[in-house]
Design a protein around this nucleic acid. Structure first.
Lengths: 205, 205
DNA sequence: CCCGCGATGTAACATCGATATATGGCAACT
DNA sequence: AGTTGCCATATATCGATGTTACATCGCGGG
């Protein structure tokens, strides 16, 4: 892709382009930013539903679909360009973070939202780039769904989702207490162990 | 990077380079191929051990480590260049495939090796690229291990009998931490909350 | 009315990727 | 030994590319 061709297609001359974008890299970053905005637009329509996990799945599928529908955009946006985080991308990650917070509030998340965000993002981007590199390979049939379910299964607690938070906390604390009871060579002083046991026991009922 | 600089550094002139590599893209692909060979060399030393799952974990870790140690190589090798599968890369995927076949023979794989290969590959490459894009971000601390365990947990059939106690403790502590992160009206003073978080985090790995 | 400033065009520069052509050296064959 | 053929390299250069110094245009405010 040459600056001259871009200028001709846009009906302007080179200095105009440089006036607005600084240099070629600046132009490409502006295009990537535009890509992020379009991507966000596909997420904007659908607000949060009753089930955060369903929202999470839909978000994953929309991400992959955007990549397959707009390969050039996607490579610009997520390819290893070394350029720095675009504002719109951070906004997308915040949406993901909000979904995960809702899941955590229901006690259905097995790590903190802050930890889960890059896990999901890395797996989803990697999957999409792989699909982009070879969309028609039979080995990649169903790949996004497989990775999606693998990641979600490991991030979501598979237990009673209809329990209220207090019950979830109680069972989790109880399970950990039971495991602790069987371990004698942990990195805990007697005081720490007692304190931890007291705090955990406070939620047992 | 310019062809002229490369030639000067190599002590030859342009036609020599073009004689051997065809064009600039050919040179870059040859460098990528060299990167794959070096990567394979790090895997070659360690033959299959008694536990295929341990080999799988070691393979994942070596992949991420190679990416972090040789960022430029890695971006050339796995960046979305549109160029086609290098021979050495296929060879690496075959090693991965062989490990998975061994796991499947032991009845410990929840999908076919053919399906599992791209799942692991996509997640691992995505994780490494993310680490490469921002190696020092605190949000990425422990990311490769988290994605690794998430993927493996979903791919490996669970036999809780022989899980080692430390792993059990780690997952249970992680689950409870995540639940705590979503609860704001617990019967905890700020100090108690901080102390509990610190103690639980001690087992997370 | 004109003054100033941002946006655009003209023309050119420096550098880049790539190549036509010529030269050197080496191995093989007569 | 001499010739031949070929591979690797060097000289010199071409066209295209990213970029910019400078001039010009148009338009809103004093």
């Amino acid at each position: 892709m040459s600056v001259r061709d871009v200028c001709q297609a846009a009906g302007v001359t080179a200095p105009t382009l440089y006036h607005h974008f600084g240099d070629k890299q600046g132009l490409l970053e502006a295009v990537a930013e535009q890509g992020f905005k379009r991507y966000l637009a596909t997420k904007q329509g659908n607000g949060p539903s009753a089930d955060p996990l369903a929202d999470l799945r839909a978000g994953w599928d929309r991400h992959v679909e955007f990549g397959l529908t707009h390969p050039a955009f996607y490579r610009l946006m997520y390819g290893p360009t070394g350029s720095r985080p675009h504002a719109a991308e951070q906004q997308g990650l915040q949406i993901l973070h909000a979904m995960l917070v809702r899941l955590a509030e229901q006690g259905r998340l097995s790590m903190t939202p802050d930890e889960a965000v890059p896990v999901i993002h890395a797996a989803c981007v990697g999957t999409t780039l792989m699909m982009l590199a070879n969309p028609d390979s039979p080995a990649h049939r169903g790949l996004p769904e497989r990775v999606r379910e693998a990641i979600f299964a490991a991030i979501i607690t598979h237990q009673h989702s209809d329990d209220d938070p207090a019950t979830t906390l109680s069972t989790q604390a109880g399970t950990l207490l039971a495991t602790l009871a069987g371990q004698h060579d942990l990195d805990l002083s007697p005081g720490e162990r007692l304190l931890l046991t007291e705090l955990l026991s406070r939620w047992i009922r």
